[in-house]
Amino acid sequence: MSNWDRFLDSFFNLRVMADQLPKIVDGFFLTVVLALCIVATGLIAGLLLAVVRALGIRPLNWLIIFVVDLFRALPPLVIIVLLYFGLPAMGMELSGFGAAWLALSLVLMAFAEEVYWAGITAVPKGQWEAARSTGIGFLPTLGAVVLPQALRMTIPPLTSRTIAITKGTALASVVAVPEILGAAQAGVSFSFNPSPLTLGALAYLILFLPVVILGRWIETRFAWKR
């Protein structure tokens, strides 16, 4: 067998690929579901934190800043492992999916809060004053006047962060979630051939290449103006 043939047999073994395809496809959809769950909870939780921070209650703000710093400083994999292997000791069982979802949502929440907060503080003070001078209360001003402008500014930085963190779904393979990478690794040990990994890599590219390209477009389209 020539080198080229051996290469093809290892990485593009069609028989192995056909064998493992259904599992990778299942993994693909699991990755999509996990990613969507993380994006939804992370972005909403981050927004809630930023809104609470805007209330300006000192001790509460220190707590928020600490939580945000904490989840910016800890590697996502460490958080996943801690939740998955640590919580059962407290009698709280968390599935691998649950651990990955919770951990990555916390990470996205922290980054999103920072970005939202930066956006809120970037809205000129005059906007607050104009609304408040017509008798609109604090929260309606935040909701109707400040946040719409702030969110527009946050679209580019949030997009790239969100993409980076959803790619962390691959980390869930470490806690036995059969998402793409998990399914591919299982396929490799089953068939003793790395073609499932090729398939897995392709699956990630199919999923994330459009997202990365879309993200690039969004970043230029909605770039910080002012």
């Binding site: 790619k167 691959a170 980390l171 591919a184 790395p194 990994l197 090729t198 890599a201 990630y204 990365v212």
Partner: peptide, 15 residues
């Protein structure tokens, strides 16, 4: 940028 780093690493290490 599209390939998760862990996927890349596993591919290089195990593949």
């Amino acid at each position: 940028r599209a390939l998760p780093p862990l996927v890349l690493l596993v591919f290089i290490y195990a593949g």
